[in-house]
């Protein structure tokens, strides 16, 4: 068993055919174009395979396939390919950049598309604009604490369970695969992860109600769809963020809605001196 664990992975080269979505620009028609990719080392990553294909295209003076990427280690959330109908490719809990060619067989036809949703318009080829996520964050995804105003970090203990759960939610890399995978193009998983991360911590309580109301309202305004609890999002999520956070956000949102409706208003109108 130990020996088999060490057996070095097969390096027999494979050849595949790519069917890639090519689209010159936003609002332009796109189509699938086939590219052969031959003699690939199965240990190369999917993006490295695209690099190789692109080098070949560039050599011929053809426009390389545009695809988003940066860290190439599954943390920045830039890469965003739908590979054979699944955001981020065949494996669970990994990003596109962590997909390796050993997951495919010699002779496979691999269909590659951008993340799609109305709020994620395609910019070019396999790149879509996910700026909507930033807008949701700007609406409330923060704790207001200006530099220099913080108490000692240990002044507010955080129960380990809460800290762990908050970290589970905070791991979201903002890739948008949840939206891409959801039949409704709903951003619930992303927003829930954000809301839960801050809402689980004592530091996040002061703005908790306001945060969830503002972020959900921004999410709706941006034209994301409505969740029907299908959990495709968490299944496609490279960080396997749990849809339990969606339930948590639903509760928070409804609670905040009612609290806001019945909370007495301060009658003082006096401003600061």
């Amino acid at each position: 068993m130990v020996a088999s664990a060490h057996a070095s992975p097969s390096t027999a080269p494979i050849s595949i055919t790519l069917r890639v979505w090519r689209q010159a620009g936003p609002n332009q028609p796109g189509k699938f174009v086939e590219y052969p990719a031959k003699d690939l080392n199965p240990n190369m990553s999917f993006l490295e395979m695209l690099d190789v294909v692109n080098d070949e295209l560039e050599r011929k003076g053809e426009d390389p396939i545009a695809f988003a990427h940066d860290c190439r280690e599954g943390i920045c959330g830039t890469c965003s390919l739908v590979i054979n109908g699944k955001p981020h490719g065949p494996h669970r809990g990994v990003a596109s950049c962590q997909t390796y060619m050993r997951s495919f067989a010699d002779g496979d036809v691999i269909v590659v598309e951008p993340f799609r949703a109305k709020p994620f318009p395609v910019i070019k080829d396999l790149i879509s604009d996910r700026g909507a996520f930033d807008q949701i964050q700007q609406a409330g995804g923060f704790i207001t604490a200006r530099a220099g105003s913080a108490p000692d970090a240990n002044a507010i203990p955080v129960p380990k369970d809460n800290a762990d759960l908050a970290m589970d939610a905070a791991q979201c890399i903002g890739c948008g695969a949840c939206v891409a995978a959801c039949k409704n193009a709903s951003a619930m998983l992303f927003v829930a992860a954000k809301v839960s991360h801050l809402g689980l911590l004592p530091q996040g309580q002061a703005e908790r109600d306001q945060r969830v109301l503002a972020m959900v309202s921004k999410m709706d305004e941006l034209g994301f769809g409505n969740c029907t609890n299908q959990y495709e999002c968490s299944a496609a999520c490279p960080k396997l963020i749990s849809h339990d956070f969606i339930a948590r956000m639903n509760r928070d949102y409804i609670g905040a809605t009612f609290r806001q409706a019945f909370r007495p208003k301060s009658l003082s109108t006096a401003g600061g001196a």
Binding site: A153, P157, P159, A163, A166, M167, A170, H197, Q203, G204
Partner: peptide, 9 residues
Amino acid sequence: AALGVPFAR
């Protein structure tokens, strides 16, 4: 910590 960074506890 004030910004909500979930440091290990």
